[in-house]
Simulated assay, not measured.
Amino acid sequence: MIQLNKIHHIAIICSNYEISKKFYTEILGFKIVSEVFRKERDSYKLDLSLNDTYCIELFSFPNPPQRVSQPEACGLRHLAFEVNDIEQTRNYLISKNINCESIRIDEFTEKNFFFIADPDDLPIEFYEK
């Protein structure tokens, strides 16, 4: 059997690099590890970390096709982040003009969670520790 150690990173292609860069860094608080413009691809690659752990590669490409979010399609369903205080997290995002779903309770774990969408409508879940 193959041995996987951990998830290394998640790659996200955005439609508007500056808007997504601001969302992931200024609103969600990811730190920039490196930022490279790849002239031959007319594309940015932004490496982001959370709590000093490298985890997201944010890419821009000219005219990427739009992602299907609704109805839910096969493939990556959403990103989920663990938080200590679900209400505080939701209130913070609302203060940043982010549309947040209502807090729900996971019927199996009885933990609180809610969803938002990133600038390209990628579903993001916040799940209480």
Rank of each mutant, 00 (worst) to 15 (best):
I94W: 04
S60E: 10
C100W: 03
R77A: 14
T53F: 07
N84E: 00
D120Q: 04
R90S: 04
E110C: 03
P64Y: 04
L76H: 10
L122P: 09
I13A: 07
S69M: 09
K31D: 15
L50T: 07
L122N: 15
K111I: 03
F114P: 03
K96H: 12
Y127T: 00
D85I: 01
E40D: 13
I32F: 07
E18Q: 14
I56P: 06
F30I: 06
I12G: 04
T53W: 00
I98T: 07
F23S: 13
I27Q: 06
D47C: 08
H8D: 11
D85W: 01
H78D: 14
E57Q: 13
I116M: 05
I116Q: 05
L58V: 09
P62T: 11
I103G: 02
M1W: 01
A11I: 01
P65K: 11
K22Q: 12
N63P: 02
I56T: 10
I103R: 01
D118Q: 11
R104I: 10
F126W: 05
H8S: 10
N97G: 05
P62L: 05
L122I: 15
I7E: 03
L50W: 13
F115L: 02
N51D: 15
K21P: 04
P123A: 03
R90M: 05
S60H: 08
K39N: 09
R90T: 01
F23T: 12
S49P: 03
K6T: 03
F59Y: 15
C74M: 14
I2F: 05
S34T: 14
D121N: 14
R90E: 01
N97L: 10
I94Y: 05
I105P: 01
K21Q: 13
P62A: 10
D52E: 15
R104D: 11
Q66C: 06
E35A: 06
H9L: 02
N99D: 14
C55Y: 10
Q70D: 13
N112A: 04
A80S: 15
F113E: 02
G29E: 05
